[in-house]
């Protein structure tokens, strides 16, 4: 047991030394931007967004985001498939105190509004669809933890999730029709809608981030719901 631990520490030290040696070749503070410079110089006129990160994630490298959304969808479906049983219910024993339940009820709409604020302003402020969606899912998690009988409308959530995923692909397909390739930013490139820096700008970034936010929120809430339920013996 002791020998095993010492060997493990020794191995990790060797790996860490190798990694440190490899990283020491890269000087800090040096100008290493090749593609990054292009993004920073062209982000405003090419995408209409101020937040370069969301512009890169949604516009320049949109396929990556589509892949991430797919990964989340598979995770949610996988959890549902692993925990699938006929009769499953919440089996929480103790009701939360009055302070907790009232506080959660009061905070729920504020957290929802804040989550929506994050994903609607993805092209202007830090954030975007994934943090916004996760924030909204936190609101549902809060309700789940504060009440023993709370349950999200399951059917509706799954339908919303699927519809949101489909609309993302649909926005990309409209780009394919108008511009000639998948995920072409038709709102900004052909319409030039809005002024840079205002809420209505950024091409299809706010549209896609609203879709992603709704999708992530419903997905994570679904995972929470699945994991909190237990099998009931008849």
């Amino acid at each position: 047991m002791m020998l095993k631990r010492i060997l493990a520490i020794f191995m990790i030290l060797i790996i860490g030394f190798w990694l440190a040696k490899g990283l020491s070749g890269i000087p800090f503070g040096a100008d290493k931007m090749l593609v990054g410079k292009y993004y920073l110089e062209h982000v405003k006129d090419q995408t209409g967004a101020i937040n370069a990160v969301t512009a890169v994630v949604v516009n320049y490298r949109g396929f990556d985001t589509l892949g991430e959304v797919t990964v989340l969808f598979i995770a949610s479906t996988g959890v549902a498939a692993l925990l699938w049983r006929k009769r499953r219910e919440r089996t929480a024993k103790m009701e939360g105190s009055v302070v907790l339940t009232t506080g959660s009820k009061l905070l729920f709409p504020f957290i929802m509004i804040f989550g929506m604020y994050i994903f609607i302003h993805g092209h202007l402020t830090p954030g975007g669809g994934f943090p916004g969606g996760a924030t909204i899912a936190t609101a549902f998690l809060l309700m789940y933890l504060a009440f023993i009988v709370y349950e999200i409308p399951h059917k509706g959530f799954e339908v919303t999730e699927g519809l949101a995923g489909m609309s993302y692909v649909l926005v990309g397909l409209i780009g394919l029709v108008i511009g000639g390739y998948f995920l072409f930013d038709w709102i900004w490139q052909t319409w030039k809608l809005g002024t840079i820096g205002k809420l209505i700008s950024g091409g299809f970034i706010p549209v896609i981030y609203t879709i992603i936010g709704i999708k992530v929120a419903t997905e994570l809430s679904g995972i929470v719901d699945n994991m909190l339920k237990e099998e009931v013996k008849e």
């Binding site: 105190s97 907790l100 905070l107």
Partner: peptide
């Protein structure tokens, strides 16, 4: 939020 979390 802080008092509620402390209470819980």
């Amino acid at each position: 939020t802080n008092p509620i979390s402390a209470h819980a």
